[in-house]
Design a protein around this nucleic acid. Structure first.
Length: 259
DNA sequence: ATGTCTCAAACATTGAGA
């Protein structure tokens, strides 16, 4: 089973680039972030025509997540539990019914800049809610994964220029500590389970020639439960997608599971 | 400090968010 995650930075702007990647990626499940669309405006036929079930959790203008799946989906839920007043569309869950059921969570974690400030407070509170949700799912002792745009640079080796991110919400010590707390629950960073060392990124800013200078950061992650990590076969970043026509500022990352 | 892109407002340009 191949499961991919892709922050597309607007479904309307990626109406050509997304299907082009989708047709060659041959993924069974795709988690999308920043669809920047309400549910009614999402071009679901584009994906249904390719054999995908489509589940969206959108909002007007910003954020928004979705799941595309060639396998049946069950028990779809929208919104990260823990704050009924939170109206931002950043979380969607579903169970993928393959030979073995896998719970998949698609997430778009808050950016948090400028830090300090209310946006950073919201980010840290959201990460605390994520921790609680991970604990709940771990108690089931079944395969699950949480994947998407974490807006977290876990370590200095995950940035081309770590010094430039020292004061940024994506790399502040409290951000990294909150991410480590998730790992310390027993979750596996799928990319780091397969590949070590510097120079592996999933995001390059549109500004200042970041792509041409390979000035990137690794902020899109797959975290796997122990039962899911047992099934991990591969994890790769589709870096070349960033160099194409009208790209997103993120590229897809994917795992294959032996199931 | 910022050379870009996307979206919504309202129909050109600006502000917000990233």
């Amino acid at each position: 089973m191949k499961i991919a995650s892709f922050n597309i930075n607007g479904i309307k702007a990626r109406i050509n680039a997304l299907p082009e990647w989708l047709d060659e990626a041959d993924a069974d499940v795709v988690l999308l972030q920043e669809i920047k669309s309400v549910d009614e405006a999402f071009p679901r036929e584009l994906f249904e025509d390719r054999g995908f079930a489509v589940e969206t959790h959108g909002q007007k203008g910003f954020n928004g997540v979705a799941i595309l799946s060639r396998l049946p989906l069950e028990d779809v839920t929208r919104g990260l539990p823990g704050d009924d007043a939170d109206e931002q569309a950043r979380w969607i869950e579903a169970t993928v019914m393959g030979d073995r059921a896998v719970r998949v969570c698609g997430l778009y974690l808050p950016n948090g800049n400028p830090a300090p400030g209310p946006k950073y407070d919201y980010k840290l509170a959201w990460m605390e809610r994520l921790h609680v949700r991970a604990q709940e799912l771990l108690m089931l002792e079944e395969p699950f994964l949480m994947a998407g745009d974490y807006n977290v640079i876990p370590q200095d080796e995950d940035a081309r220029k770590p010094e430039a991110w020292r004061e940024d919400a994506l790399a502040l010590p409290a951000t990294r500590a909150a991410f480590r707390r998730l790992l310390n629950l027993g979750l596996t960073d799928a990319f780091r389970a397969r590949t070590q060392g510097a120079g592996h990124y999933t995001f390059w800013d549109y500004q200042a020639g970041a792509w041409n200078r390979d000035n990137g950061i690794r902020i899109d992650h797959f975290l796997l439960s122990p039962q899911c990590a047992d099934l991990l076969s591969d994890c790769q970043i589709d870096k070349a997608v960033r160099g194409r026509e009208k790209p997103s500022d993120h590229v897809p990352i994917w795992v294959t599971l032996d199931v």
